[in-house]
Simulated scan of single mutants.
Amino acid sequence: MSQVTVIKEINAPVELVFQTISDIRNFSKAVPDIVDVEFLTDQKTGVGTRFRETRVMYGKEATEELEVTELVENDRIRIMADSHGVVWDSLFSVKENGDATELTLVMDMRPHKLMAKIMTFVMKRSMRKALEKDMDAVKEYCEG
């Protein structure tokens, strides 16, 4: 298993930050690299929501199917995907920090194929940069 953690302090209320990360419609507005979202369920938020996200990664469009597997209002949301031989487990959490919000993203990458184990090791640094870019975009969106 490989893990990446990114923490951002955002000068905005917890509720706003949580609404931004927990509703893919808001998250896709905040993160410019997300170019399309297609819902695969009738529900648009909450546990069980499944969607197909297309984003620009490394100069090319990539599409992944994701599912919200855990949500505690104004606390945390877990979004998971099983793609390319890896379970991608992203846990976003928020907590009040004075007048600001501390947003933490912990992404566990659990490869279940040999080639995927090699790729997650090789990609860890670039994944960190991509996740930091997403978190910077959320910060800018919430503070703007």
Rank of each mutant, 00 (worst) to 15 (best):
N11W: 05
T41F: 02
D42V: 01
K113C: 06
D42A: 08
K95V: 13
V47A: 01
D108F: 15
K117Y: 08
V56A: 07
M115Q: 12
I7A: 12
M123W: 12
I79K: 01
L16H: 06
D108P: 12
N26M: 00
L16T: 08
K113Q: 13
F121R: 15
L105D: 03
K95Y: 07
V86C: 01
V87A: 14
D82R: 14
V4S: 06
R76L: 14
L131V: 06
A30F: 01
E65L: 02
S126R: 10
F27S: 08
F39C: 09
A81Q: 02
R55D: 10
C142K: 00
V14D: 04
L114D: 06
M127K: 03
D108A: 13
K60D: 01
V122E: 09
T5K: 12
V4W: 04
L66V: 03
K8P: 03
E53A: 00
G98A: 15
A62H: 15
A12W: 09
V37D: 03
D136M: 08
D136G: 11
F92G: 12
F51A: 11
K117R: 11
T54Q: 07
I7D: 08
E132G: 03
L131S: 07
K113H: 10
K117G: 07
T101H: 10
R110N: 14
G144M: 04
A100Y: 06
N97D: 04
V56S: 04
F39P: 03
G85K: 01
A81R: 03
M135F: 05
V94E: 06
S28E: 02
E73S: 15
F92N: 06
L91G: 10
F92K: 05
F27W: 05
G144P: 10
R76V: 12
K29I: 04
R76F: 06
L66P: 00
V138M: 01
R25S: 13
V138K: 05
I34Y: 07
A62W: 14
I24M: 14
T120I: 02
V68H: 00
K129N: 05
K117A: 08
M123S: 13
A30D: 08
D99A: 15
R50W: 03
M109S: 06
T63F: 13
H112A: 04
G59N: 05
D108V: 11
T101Q: 11
L71S: 05
T5F: 14
M1T: 11
M80E: 08
G85W: 06
E38M: 03
A81V: 00
E132A: 03
T104V: 14
V14F: 02
G98L: 15
L40R: 09
K60A: 07
Q43F: 01
L105R: 07
V106Q: 12
